[in-house]
Nucleic acid binder design. Structure first.
Lengths: 146, 146
DNA sequence: CGGGATCCTGTATGATACTG
DNA sequence: CAGTATCATACAGGATCCCG
């Protein structure tokens, strides 16, 4: 209530409908590679080459990178410029829209880094608690050596 | 304002490494259901019941919802409270951390709604351009009709 | 170098049924 | 109601090979 956004609860309800167009947009951003590519391009501040992105994003395959870039290009978040030089040279740059989206994905990336430690701690904690032998019952051994 | 740890380009580089812990966090948020659940809880402003979430998030299966909530709980973003009433009643609430994360995912959801029209237009445009007949080549297909 | 096209497998996700 | 357990499968994603 304290936050003043232009979207109303009614808009949100529509968002949750599986046929809401915005869902396809969310799903574009809510995918690790799409998110990383956008964040990387935004942080880099200038166009990047295909291989540059590939090298930066550890673990991404050529297929996934191509696929991701295509999807982003298709939705108007990045532009693809081909320089017909001898060794082909293709650069990807963010559009205005892409920069905006990049701000959001960048924020997630940054937040994740800043809270990774805390979250991983909570995770270990949870796992430990779940690993406690299932034996709360009975006055038998307080500590079932199991 | 939260303690803003100045992120440097070097930090980012680490982010892109597949073994960077933050990646697991990103992947928690960068998934449509996780994103929607967080956003929904945040927008709702108060705890929600399992079935409430299920009804709201059109298309989510009980399995996915459970799985998503578990993951969020594990990472300390939501708390799970069970009221041992006759018909079981379980409520999910955001933790402080969850509220923060929710701000980010909410932002993505909101942005997606606000730009869906524009993005879908770009998408149609792209598809149309791609659909241009692969060259109404004149006489005798120059290329092997495969 | 920057992909396109294939092939192939693991996992994510869905559908269904059962339980406390 | 709020799950857990199972089974079935679609699709994401990895590995390869090839081409302009």
């Amino acid at each position: 209530m304290e936050t003043k956004v232009s979207t109303t609860p009614e808009d949100w309800a529509a968002t949750y409908r599986r046929d809401c167009p915005s869902r396809t947009v969310v799903e574009l951003l809510a995918n690790k590679w799409g998110l990383y590519v956008l964040a990387a391009l935004r942080r880099h501040g200038r166009p990047m080459r295909f291989s540059e992105l590939r090298r930066l994003l550890d673990g991404i395959t050529q297929k996934m990178l191509t696929q991701t870039l295509r999807a982003l290009e298709r939705d108007g978040l990045v532009t693809r410029t081909v320089y017909p030089t001898v060794p082909p040279r293709v650069e990807y740059a963010l559009t205005e829209l892409g920069v905006e989206a990049g701000r959001l994905t960048d924020a997630i990336g940054t937040w994740s880094v800043e809270h990774a430690r805390q979250i991983l701690a909570a995770r270990r904690d949870f796992d430990d608690r779940a690993a406690i032998p299932p034996q709360p019952v009975g006055p038998t051994g307080t500590g079932p050596a199991r």
